[in-house]
Amino acid sequence: MAITFDHVNYMYQPNSPFEAVGLSDVSFTVPSESFTAIIGHTGSGKSTLVQHLNGLLKPTSGTVTVDDFQLTAKTTNKHLKSLHQHVGMVFQFPENQLFDQTVERDIAFGPLNFGFTNEEAMSLAHQAAHDVGLPDELLKRSPFELSGGQMRRVAIAGVLASQPRVLVLDEPTAGLDPRGRAEMMAMFAKLKADQHLTVILVTHQMDDVADYADQALVMAHSNLIKAGTPAEIFADPEWVKAQQLALPTAANFAQHLVTRGFEFDSLPLTAEQLAIQLRGQLPKEGR
């Protein structure tokens, strides 16, 4: 599903002393089945932006279009349900939303709310549990008995079970150890390919942006300040630094090499790209 933001503004608690700008004139397009990363500081408007993707917030002015669904200030809550189903949201620390007595029932909760029969919901739940790599023997257990990493997978399965076409991930790997992070990112990449999902990832991990994203949106002070491919975003290291953002590890390392007389056609973003670009600048093994 393609997504378009057209001059979207959002105001928190308008006409009160607590009034605050959430989004200011944000416009962009996310192509169907692409992987988009949203980066920026805490409080830059990233969370406000993603809450518009499935109508948890409605624009104060402007239009959000998801496939053929249009979300404006006038959209009534009744019409939001299909949007909720088609845009799955994995919030930060999603394990904090688990509540049901068994893993199976917690995962089936979404499908049941969206009107699937009990049988269908259970079958969807089992499929989703399988997709996130939860062993069958956990399905009848209480979600509160599981380890932190397993609980997070249950919560993610709970979102996938409703068969969303768009998957929004808000820092899905926060608090995991490095192996858990790598496994989870690989899982999202596989889900995206297998189920033809459009993925939107909010992250502080620039290496994930370099490794997975087709395009990135940079937010600052409620504004969208840059949009483009990761290569375009990180092409100007000075600008990146001025925004108090980091470079991917490989790009940062390459920057150091540039000062030592190495030359790169474009700034390499991953260790692999860097190694490829170092061909011809280093002796071959065994010489």
């Binding site: 790598a182 390392f253 260790a271 190694a275 170092l278 280093l282 071959k284 093994e285």
Partner: peptide, 28 residues
């Protein structure tokens, strides 16, 4: 379950490209 240091990852990629790599672990 820990990550590999970036220097190790880069050395592995250099080896894949058939380039020289350091014989022992180096910091970045």
């Amino acid at each position: 379950g820990l990550d590999l240091p970036f220097s190790t990852k880069l050395s592995q990629q250099l080896a894949k490209q058939g380039l020289v790599t350091p014989k022992q672990y180096l910091t970045d």
